[in-house]
């Protein structure tokens, strides 16, 4: 069966070549640079000083650790809230009612929407002169724009979290709808006939059934929001700053020595995401083994 093996190799080579040269090649070269290896400016030594600088030097340590804290806060909060909103939305919407198709479409609308546009939309709605502030002013809640709370470009990353909720809730929603649809209502009706009330049916029947999908979707969302650039770049502040934005700015710094720090930051982001994913696989594998 030499022919078949040759066919497998020939078919898989082109996409793997792209992934290896561009993706892994890029990571590898970035890693080399983060170690201080920069032939372009005549630096050939290899050390971890960029990592040390970023994490512990007086100049960057505070920036880094607050940035990391903001990253974790934004990713956790937006993933959790998007999942919760989507879960309630999906549970409410699956029963038939007037204009269900339209609602379904609106709830899925943000799915193909680029993050960039969602971020702009959040500015339009939540900024101090945005739509909500205008509504508040119309009904007499606030006077000048300054009375409206700072929800965009704020130091707690609220605007960033809002943008991710907007966008990723649609993603969770689609996944949950298809899970709920494939499950049907038999389990719930059975539980009801066994005496489970509304809350119990949600807690002991629906939640365990959708949890595996919800969890793996959460990992995707968390990993994405942890490493994405556009939304925090548009909706964030200079301090505290999320790590991807920080890495990018180091990289664009005219001082080429800062490049190593930028690369080190991007590698740190990748490592954190990787640890998370490995942890997730370990969890699910352990669960499979247990079952």
């Amino acid at each position: 069966m030499g022919g078949e093996r040759l066919k497998i190799i020939l078919s898989l080579t082109p996409p793997l070549l792209i992934i290896f040269t561009l993706f892994f090649g890029g990571i590898f070269y970035g890693f080399l640079q983060s170690l201080g290896y920069q032939p372009a400016i005549g630096k050939y030594e290899i050390n971890f000083s960029a990592y040390y600088n970023v994490m512990f030097s007086e100049r960057y340590a505070k920036l880094f650790w607050t940035g990391l804290g903001l990253n974790l806060w934004v990713s956790f909060a937006s993933t959790f809230l998007a999942a919760v909103f989507a879960l309630f939305g999906a549970l409410a919407i699956r029963k038939t009612f007037f204009a269900k198709t339209i609602c379904n479409f609106i709830y899925s609308l943000n799915l193909p929407m680029p993050h960039l546009v969602v971020a702009v939309g959040i500015i339009f709605v939540f900024s101090q002169s945005g739509l909500l502030a205008r509504f508040a002013s119309q009904i007499g809640l606030i006077g000048s724009p300054g009375d409206f709370p700072v929800l965009v470009k704020d130091k707690y990353g609220l605007g960033i979290i809002l943008a991710y909720i907007w966008k990723e809730a649609a993603f969770f929603f689609i996944i949950l709808m298809s899970v709920l649809q494939s499950l049907g209502e038999n389990f719930e009706e059975l539980a009801q006939s066994l005496g489970a009330n509304r809350w119990q049916r949600f807690r002991y029947v629906i939640l365990p059934l959708v949890m595996p999908n919800l969890f793996s979707a959460s990992i995707i969302v968390f990993a994405f929001s942890f490493g994405a650039y556009e939304v925090p770049a548009l909706l964030g502040v200079i301090y505290p700053q999320m790590l991807p934005v920080m890495a990018f700015e180091f990289f664009l710094n005219p001082d080429l020595n800062a490049r190593s720090e930028g690369m080190a930051l991007s590698i740190i982001i990748a490592i954190i995401v990787m640890i998370l994913v490995v942890f997730y696989f370990w969890l699910t594998q352990a669960k499979i083994r247990k079952d």
Partner: peptide, 17 residues
């Protein structure tokens, strides 16, 4: 793997290449 790791992880290094 490119769907899991953030683009910033590879594009900075790739840019130099």
């Amino acid at each position: 793997s490119p769907t899991i790791l953030p683009p910033i992880a590879f594009v900075l290094g790739l840019n130099i290449n």
